[in-house]
Design a protein around this nucleic acid. Structure first.
Lengths: 333, 333
DNA sequence: GTGAAAGCGCTAACAC
DNA sequence: GTGTTAGCGCTTTCAC
């Protein structure tokens, strides 16, 4: 079923069908109705490829996301997809591993799709990637991180302050020896670590590398292993700040295996507030990112960027919310 | 950067560039090298839209998935995506809500993309959807469910037997009053319920609607609420079989809130073995679907279907594995 | 109001 | 071996 078939059936030219389908002016109501009926009856849908060839745009936004995306990113991309759809854009996902070859492969795919814009929910390592993004002058929004030196618009939470608040919460409960479970690669890890240090410093507590564990990634598995390592070498901990909820979940698992109770023996705080946090037992105290607002804003920025409506378009740093559940308590006397 | 630009730079025709890019025969090595160098230097990537117009195929497989996809489905689609890529196919996701309008919108999108094949990780309700799939004679694979009456290829686990094994495990531990937390819409819920009943029957236990709760969906939230309802009206339960892990996680949350311990006061079994199960405290006893094999097989079937290599191509019912962790134990004496 | 014609970037059949 | 040509399905001038 092509536009020509519809035209033939309606006894008009393809141009007229195109006008009707794209809601243009200047079509006799009678003919419009006839065509609309035919479209409905045949189930005709225009071919996107042909359409984007002539329009030189695809109405598609690419979202680059780690192939091991976690629940936080999963929720985020659903939200972005939803809002983008509201603006009339389709969404295309590009899963990339933390490897230069995977990033370059992703870049090739990106180019082949002739996207209208690109949203990065993933920090890539290869400079060539960002160079292409800049050189292509494609609309780009970084979501959940920033590269201030690169002049891309960015949507993210105040990572440092969030981590500071999480750590301060533990300090206020009376904890003095607070372990840190951190990750690698992504800038938010470094920022959350800065916040952790700031809270310690403000309370007059010394930063101790001996109670810091830097995991290679951010999964529950890494959290479990990282906590094992921490437990074996860092004595006297009464609390742990894990830089993501999944690290926290893994850490709690290790404590469970060691026969330690949370928060009885150790308090644990996470970061992100993924859906599952509220359903764990005990519920996880964590730092909530305003994921809905962030996703909505990301889609709005992208839409404005594509439309060239640059008034009021700017990066936004969102506030966080400390969600106190049951995984934190005063240390045992 | 189009093929003509490259052709001009290389001093050859577009056809020659096309031959080189698509690795066809009959190009003088010297010219081939020149073009390859130019491609690399300019970062030229062919335009997919133009390519698929003339080839009349997109090298893209659509995956239809619920917009609220859970961790099991999330893992599954990553696996399928990975294998499909190995076969040279791109993947395009279509998120659909459990609403007729959403399904029809999805169908329109599907048509506009001119896909090479469609994988359903989601049972839709609208008959028109399946009718289109059949009428279009597009390769289709149903993954994680079946519609025997529809003649599509299907990849799924033996739901009934898995549920039977889960329930039998509880019975063997000595449980006699085993609640059921079920869901709606999807056929696996009904199948798992059948397995639950079969196990009861085999043990000479009566099926009691009074200890069955049917949630509207399958999230942890529904599990929490369903368990609340069950707890208030079904007295004397010593165990619960939840038809998905997420329902089980929510159920455990309710028990925690009620001051009941798992497995001390109640045993809980889930189904699917999503990643997080092993990291919960206590670890969740559950029925593991061979997700990697299922995803791989789905991609293989799709690839074979597209290539028209129909030898040995058939639906497969996979076996399961009962994973006993810490959420199940003998009932209190 | 409507149709004819051109062209988007690419590939394949055919000519040379 | 290589170039010329036609055409995929669509939209948009530009005539009429």
């Amino acid at each position: 079923m092509s536009i020509k078939d519809i035209a033939k059936l309606a006894g008009v030219s393809a141009s007229t069908v195109s006008r009707v389908v794209n809601q243009r002016q200047y079509v006799k109501p009678e003919i419009r109705e006839r065509i609309l009926a035919l479209v409905k009856q045949t189930g005709y849908v225009p071919n996107n490829a042909a359409r984007s060839m002539v329009l030189k745009r695809t109405f598609t936004v690419g979202i680059v996301i780690p192939d091991t995306f976690n629940m936080f990113q999963r929720e985020l991309f659903s939200i972005i997809e939803h809002h983008l759809e509201g603006f009339g854009y389709r969404t295309s996902f590009f899963f990339v591993k933390w490897e230069p070859e995977s990033e370059m492969k992703c870049l090739r795919k990106l180019k082949g799709e002739k996207l209208d814009g690109i949203i990065m929910i993933h920090e890539v390592s290869h400079p060539e990637f960002y160079e292409y993004l800049t050189a292509s002058s494609l609309p780009v929004v970084l979501c959940t991180f920033d590269r201030p030196e690169l002049e891309f618009l960015s949507i993210h939470v105040n990572e440092e302050e969030g981590a500071r608040a999480a750590t301060q919460h533990l300090i206020e409960l009376g904890h003095r020896r607070i372990g840190l479970l951190s990750g690698s690669y992504f800038s938010f890890a470094a920022q959350r670590t800065v916040g952790y240090k700031a809270a310690l410093e403000a309370a007059g507590l010394a930063f101790d590398e001996g109670i810091v564990e830097r995991a290679p990634s951010y999964s529950a598995e890494e959290g479990r292993d990282g906590m094992r390592s921490l437990l074996s070498r860092a004595k006297g901990l009464t609390a742990v700040f894990a830089e993501t909820d999944e690290l926290a979940i893994g850490a709690i698992r290790t404590l469970f295996e060691a026969g330690l109770s949370v928060p009885g023996d150790l308090s644990v705080v996470g970061f992100d507030d993924i859906d599952i946090c509220a359903f764990l037992s005990p519920g996880l105290t964590t730092v909530r990112q305003p994921i809905h607002e962030m996703g909505k804003k990301t889609a709005e920025l992208m839409s404005a960027l594509i439309a060239g409506e640059l008034a009021g378009v700017d990066s936004t740093t969102f506030g966080f919310e400390l969600i106190v559940r049951e995984s934190t308590a005063r240390p045992r006397a």
